[in-house]
């Protein structure tokens, strides 16, 4: 499904990713963890075909990265889009169907977009303006946009940032539900999510990738999320908060 071989990315003089190699089979839930500035978002952008590696290559679905955008549902960081843009949640979801902004939403598109919003518990937001949605509501709208095209791969860049615990919990449940639904249809849905939440990575993911410019660890959560590997990735010991007696 996702194949990275010796991927190195450099911006100006700074090396952001160095010799990253891994293979992720279809149907997995991969959590990418690592310190800020460790190259997590860059790795996702390489997978999307937005950033071209200086060395090495990235392939998705057996083809070059970026060749099949229609097979990917991407949930970007909320901070990237223009919040003053005059748009409704329904229009945003329709972009997931069209790959362009709708001047007019057709009946069939509206029905599909409403179903996608309903799936994420946001049907009531359809005609609300994006500028008037909370962080959690926006995250649901962006997730509906990603899922409306029934993607084989869902890529999420820090979806829990700026949302409360309940929204984050719902988000994971919705992704699990989508994967179960795909499995029932005989399809594999792969999820790749950047997260800072180690507990969520341990609980929801079946594979974890620890990244700090280089790939520090890749494998099952129980093996990867042990303290020594994380210490190496983050460069210091995690703060321990002992429970009071």
């Amino acid at each position: 499904m996702i194949h990275f071989h010796g991927v190195t990315v450099r911006f100006s003089e700074a090396t952001v990713l160095e010799d990253v190699t891994f293979d992720l089979p279809a149907g997995r839930f991969l959590a990418i963890v690592g310190p800020n500035g460790g190259g997590k978002s860059t790795l996702v952008k390489v997978a999307l075909g937005l950033v071209r590696p200086l060395r090495g290559h990235a392939a998705l679905f057996g083809d070059r990265a970026g060749a099949h955008p229609e097979r990917i549902g991407y949930v970007p960081q909320l901070k990237t889009f223009d919040r003053t843009f005059p748009a409704t949640a329904l229009e945003l979801v329709v972009t997931g169907l069209r790959g362009s902004w709708p001047a007019r939403v057709g009946r069939e598109e509206r029905e599909r977009a409403l179903a996608a919003l309903d799936r994420v518990g946001a049907a009531s937001l359809a005609d609300r303006q994006l500028a008037r949605l909370s962080g959690g509501e926006l995250q649901r709208a962006f997730l509906a946009r990603a899922l409306v095209r029934r993607p084989e791969l869902v890529l999420l860049d820090e979806p829990a940032t700026g949302v409360d615990f309940l929204v984050e919990h719902d988000l994971h449940d919705l992704l699990e539900a989508y994967r179960r639904e795909c499995a029932a249809e005989g399809r594999c849905a792969t999820v790749v999510m950047i997260t800072h939440d180690m507990a969520a990575a341990r609980f929801h993911a079946d594979t974890v990738l620890v990244l700090n410019r280089r790939l520090m660890a890749f494998g099952p959560p129980d093996e990867v999320l042990e303290s020594e590997k994380l210490r190496l990735a983050f460069g210091h010991r995690r703060h321990e908060h002992p429970v009071a007696p």
Partner: peptide, 20 residues
């Protein structure tokens, strides 16, 4: 070009990810 230009205006990265 209106639809793609509007999409790129909304979020350039999202539009590029969709091949715009």
């Amino acid at each position: 070009n209106w639809g793609r230009l509007a999409y790129a205006t909304f979020d350039e990265e999202l539009a590029r990810a969709d091949g715009v």
